[in-house]
Simulated assay, not measured.
Amino acid sequence: MEKNKHMRSRVLYVAITVGMVVIGLASRRFPVLGKYPGDALWTMMVFFGLAAVMPALSIARLTIGALVISYAVEFSQLYQAPWINAVRAHPVGHLVLGSTFNWPDLVAYTAGGLMAMLLMTVLRRYK
Rank of each mutant, 00 (worst) to 15 (best):
S9E: 13
L119Q: 09
W42Q: 07
M1I: 15
W103I: 05
A40N: 01
R8T: 13
H6G: 07
A60M: 08
A52P: 00
D105I: 01
M20I: 04
D39I: 02
A66F: 02
M20R: 04
R88K: 13
V92W: 12
R10C: 07
A40P: 00
L114E: 08
S70Y: 05
L97W: 09
T63M: 10
P82R: 11
L57A: 09
M44T: 07
V11Y: 11
P55S: 05
R124E: 15
G98D: 04
S27Q: 06
L118K: 10
M120H: 13
S9T: 10
K127P: 03
K5S: 14
V68T: 13
L123I: 15
V18P: 00
P55K: 06
P82Y: 07
A81E: 04
L33M: 07
L62E: 03
I23H: 02
Q77M: 05
A116T: 12
M44I: 02
L41Q: 02
A40V: 02
L118H: 08
I23N: 03
R28Q: 11
M44W: 02
A81W: 08
P31V: 08
Y13N: 00
L106V: 07
A52T: 04
L118R: 12
V53N: 01
F101M: 01
R29H: 13
I69T: 11
L123H: 12
K3H: 15
E2R: 15
F48Y: 08
K127C: 13
E2H: 15
T63H: 03
P91Y: 14
M45F: 00
S58P: 03
V21A: 11
V68R: 12
P82F: 07
T43E: 00
P31S: 09
M44E: 06
L106W: 02
M1Q: 14
T43D: 00
P104I: 00
R61D: 11
H6S: 15
